[in-house]
Simulated scan of single mutants.
Amino acid sequence: MMIDEVPLSTIDLTTTDARPLISLAGPGDYFALLKPRVMSLVVLTAVVGFLAAPGEMNPILGSVSLLAIALGAGGAGALNMWYDADIDRIMSRTANRPVPAGRIARESALAFGVALSALSVMLLGLASNWFAAGFLAFTILFYAVFYTMGLKRRTVQNIVIGGAAGAFPPMVAWSAVTGGLAWESFALFLIIFLWTPPHFWALALFKMKDYGAAGIPMLPNVSGAASTRRHIFVYSVILAPVGVLPFWLGIAGPIYGAMATLLGVQFVVHAYRVLRMADEDIAMRPAKSLFGFSIVYLFALFGLLLLSTIAAAEFGIHVL
């Protein structure tokens, strides 16, 4: 009997290890492998790195370089989903991703991630310089190998150290323009690096069961909720003044400085509410509120930096 004579309802399209026997993947599934929400943050922070860096870059080569950084982030995301398919299947937040849901085979996700990563590094090297390309390659390896394969399942400090991977893109962009690095680019890195732990620990507080079932040693599961709340508050207090560093270093204007200060104070207020949250608070509204605000905070900060750098290019001074 030919396969097209068999009713589709009688065909098992997936195996128990979530590898499709008949390809169910559409363009949207491959796009989902890129982790588009993470990629949007990478693109925003990279654009700020490009515009804040001293010097100029050909607009076409700059656009290609930005595309390369975005593809590198997407490739790293695909490699992360390839390796983490087993635990993604267990967690409610990630169970519907293309690989654990059985729409894309793990081997396809691996090939897609490797191809995108290699393409991104080559593109950046050809469009800008090989120092930036090497930095991008290091970033991809740091996230896909050092964090995903090494730290995530082994240490409670997984998010702290692994968060560096998400903080590198503005430095990569800076090096694409200048061929090197500077303290200003490190300040952009530091903002994202310090933001990552309170952001993800807030999530981990109300997703403890998911992380526990997946066997991931997140701070609340290992050290308890009270210790996690204290860590969130300490990181938030450190983050608030660091968020103002671009103003003090001269890559943003007074409006950015004032807004970054206000946003930092709000971040600390949210973190204090988490600190004071009762252990028996099942709803965990303060943690959910901090998690939501932390996203607004980072996008607002880099959105303001973007406007400030554009205004500086237009008027010659940092009016924003």
Rank of each mutant, 00 (worst) to 15 (best):
M2K: 06
D4F: 09
V6N: 05
V6T: 14
I11D: 06
I11F: 13
I11L: 15
L13T: 14
T14K: 15
L24N: 04
P27L: 11
Y30P: 01
A32M: 11
L34F: 04
V42T: 14
P54S: 13
M57E: 00
N58L: 06
P59W: 09
I60F: 12
I60P: 00
L66Y: 01
A68P: 00
I69M: 03
G74M: 05
A76C: 13
A78Q: 01
L79I: 03
N80S: 11
D84A: 07
D88N: 04
A95K: 14
N96H: 09
N96E: 14
V99R: 00
G102Q: 01
G102H: 01
R106D: 07
E107T: 08
S108W: 00
A109C: 10
L110E: 05
A118T: 08
L119G: 01
V121W: 02
L124Y: 04
L124H: 04
G125W: 00
A127W: 02
W130M: 06
A132C: 09
G134K: 08
L136V: 03
L141V: 15
F142H: 14
F142M: 13
Y143T: 06
A144N: 06
V145N: 08
F146L: 15
R154N: 07
R154S: 06
T155E: 10
V156L: 12
I159C: 14
G166V: 10
F168Q: 04
P169W: 02
P169E: 05
P170Y: 08
M171W: 00
V172F: 01
V177E: 08
S185R: 04
F186G: 03
I192N: 01
T196D: 08
H199W: 05
F200P: 02
M208A: 15
G212Y: 05
A213V: 07
N221A: 14
V222E: 15
H231M: 12
H231Y: 10
H231N: 11
I232M: 08
V234I: 15
Y235I: 04
G243T: 05
V244C: 09
L245Q: 04
P246N: 07
L249M: 15
A252N: 06
M259S: 10
A260L: 07
G264R: 08
V265Q: 09
V265F: 14
Y272A: 13
V274P: 11
D279R: 09
D279M: 10
A287P: 08
K288R: 15
L290C: 04
S294M: 12
S294G: 14
V296G: 04
L298G: 09
L298C: 07
F299T: 13
A300R: 02
F302T: 05
F302P: 02
L305E: 06
L306D: 08
L307T: 10
A311E: 07
V319Y: 11
V319G: 15
